[in-house]
Design a protein around this nucleic acid. Structure first.
Lengths: 217, 217
DNA sequence: AGGTGTGAACACTTTCACAGCA
DNA sequence: TGCTGTGAAAGTGTTCACACCT
């Protein structure tokens, strides 16, 4: 009974969750799809459709109970239990991500850090020793790593991913600008900031051209 | 001729460009939509559709000339001239991005760095002095900044964006997990790594159960 | 033959509009 | 009455299939 849930729906659910957590801190008890839509920059119908894929969480005439809906969203997104994450690549981006408290706060615990550079091995990052990349398979198994954050150079990314997947990793957050090839059942999310900047560049260049009909509104 | 181009098309164009640059370095002269599709993990028809939105760059029976197509893609994406970028938020992520050479290599030049913390002001980052955030409007104007990379705390993001936009910035790469509200004509790209991890979490949980367990408690 | 460019078919996503329940 | 949940309609994006060019 695997329903098809679109990527954009998942991203919106994550967005809704962030909004609900804020509202809960403000002791808001209930909100309508209309209000949630306004905060999430979408439409009320979209909010209702998204949520209705997973159940009926609202009360007609009233709206959605904040705390309850938050709990449901966490369950839907698989955030019921913390995830065990390994960070591979202890360079600048890796270190910035490691320090980024929101991961831990959201239940993504970095339980291991690995790098290629023997000069870094043995350093302790917030109590976690940096280990050599050659230990990757062992670490994945002994620490029960489920998700990998990959911040190694492009040339190394595929090989590291292969080893990790063979050892049991099932999800990868990939910062290397390469298209990783992985077996069925392994999920990948790519983060590519150059691509984002190029998307901006495209839009800005488009607007320039003066081709925009500034007619009515 | 004001065509509508979908977001996914733009992302693919950026991907194609990366592949073409690599092929050019390997002195490949020509490639078919089929080959490009294989590298970019899409379909040949998709490649041809994407490219045909902007012109006829291929030769029937032959394929696309690599160097030529690369040049066209750069023009389409607005990469013909370098962009002037300011980095606001000289924290860990900001510093990692600053060091990230691919931006410069791709024509995104960071010409100014600003931060809130007076202790950092005056430091020089690769020859660029860190300036206080209060100078933002001045810096945008004097340096002709077109794009902002925003790595400030969520609470500050909207205010910083407002000031920058008022001073002339037209595109923002936003790392703060908030929904920025900006006037028409300003482009935004959000980068939200927690959202990416939550998308992974969703997929991994889905695969596990295969069933929909509406948490009762 | 070989491979592009593209209308038409198809698939997926969003919006509309309203029945139904608190 | 107010707002959800949801089929049906509209809108977008992707794939197919083939005419056409080299």
């Amino acid at each position: 009974m695997s329903r098809k849930v679109s990527d954009s729906t998942v991203r919106r659910l994550s967005h809704y969750l962030r909004i609900l957590e804020k509202l809960e801190r403000q002791a808001v008890a209930t909100l309508s799809s209309e209000e949630l839509a306004r905060s999430a920059d979408t439409t009320a119908a979209q909010v209702r459709k998204d949520l209705s894929l997973f159940g009926s969480f609202g009360k007609r005439g009233l709206g959605y109970p904040v705390t309850d809906l938050k709990r449901h969203l966490r369950a839907i997104l698989g955030l019921g239990k913390p995830w065990r994450v390994a960070l591979v690549g202890a360079g600048r981006i890796g270190s910035a991500l490691f320090e980024y408290g929101d991961f831990r706060r959201r239940g993504f615990n970095i339980v291991a850090v690995l790098d290629n550079d023997r000069a870094k091995v043995g350093d302790a990052w917030g109590g976690i020793p940096v280990r050599h990349i050659s230990e990757l398979a062992d670490v994945v198994r002994s620490e029960g790593v489920e998700i990998l954050i990959l911040t190694v150079p492009s040339e190394a990314a595929q090989e590291v991913a292969d080893v990790a997947v063979a050892a049991g990793v099932r999800g990868i957050l990939n910062f290397a600008p390469v298209q990783l090839r992985l077996p069925e059942g392994v999920s990948i999310q790519d983060v590519n900031m150059v691509m984002e900047l190029e998307a901006l560049s495209f839009e800005l260049s488009r607007d320039d051209d003066g081709l925009t009909d500034v007619a009515a509104s």
